[in-house]
């Protein structure tokens, strides 16, 4: 069908632009977006951990520095100190829960793992690109062989990347455990053991 030289050349340019270059752009933009998202979430987790430590340390310091307020009937001027330490204690509870939520978000999106997959695909697509046929090849058989190697190499990179992507998608273990605990707790109250059998996949 596409055996004539002009036909092959036209198809080569088409494949180079719409398949290979598009795929390369996709890998590049995905790697950049995923790296950014992973870094942002990591910063939020670190910030939450830092604030938790500060809140706990501040609460403990205030309590140690105000012994007159740590008695059964504290002085009236202790109101601000008691409120302050209560707020800090609540923060020391809330912030780790938020940090854990962002940890699960990172596990759900698998940014770091996918960046590795797409980075590797980018390197492989350059290898496929290196096999592209040159207009200066005079022999049509050689041109056709180079064209085949170029296209098959690119499609093979796409196949490998798809297969690896499929293997990397998993429901985070923390969510599986939470659903299992919730199901057990719900059963205690409803007495129904059959609910949510497939929930982990959801």
């Amino acid at each position: 069908m596409a055996s004539s030289r002009p036909d092959l050349e036209a198809r080569y340019h088409m494949f180079e632009k719409f398949a290979l270059s598009d795929q390369r752009n996709y890998y590049k933009s995905t790697v950049s977006r995923f790296r950014e998202a992973a870094a942002q979430v990591n910063r939020i987790r670190a910030l939450m951990a830092l604030l938790t430590g500060v809140a706990a340390a501040a609460a403990s310091t205030i309590v140690s520095a105000s012994p007159q307020c740590n008695i059964a009937e504290p002085l009236p001027e202790c109101g601000v100190i008691i409120t302050g330490t209560s707020v800090l204690a609540v923060l020391a509870v809330i912030l780790p829960a938020i940090a854990a939520m962002f940890g699960t978000l990172a596990d759900l999106y698998q940014w770091d793992r996918l960046v590795t997959i797409y980075d590797e695909a980018l390197l492989n697509i350059e290898v496929a690109d290196a096999q592209s046929p040159d207009r200066e090849i005079e022999d049509d058989v050689t041109y056709h062989a180079a064209f085949l190697a170029f296209c098959e190499g690119t499609l093979s990179v796409m196949t490998d990347e798809s297969a690896q992507w499929g293997q990397s998608i998993r429901t985070p273990a923390q969510i599986e455990k939470f659903l299992e605990d919730a199901r057990r707790r719900a059963e205690l109250h409803s007495g129904d053991a059959s609910t949510g059998e497939n929930g982990a996949g959801g």
């Binding site: 659903l179 919730a182 199901r183 707790r185 719900a186 409803s190 609910t195 929930g199 959801g202």
Partner: peptide, 10 residues
């Protein structure tokens, strides 16, 4: 919360 999670999972 546990009942809500179980409902959604179902």
């Amino acid at each position: 919360i546990a009942l809500l999670a179980t409902y959604l999972a179902t």
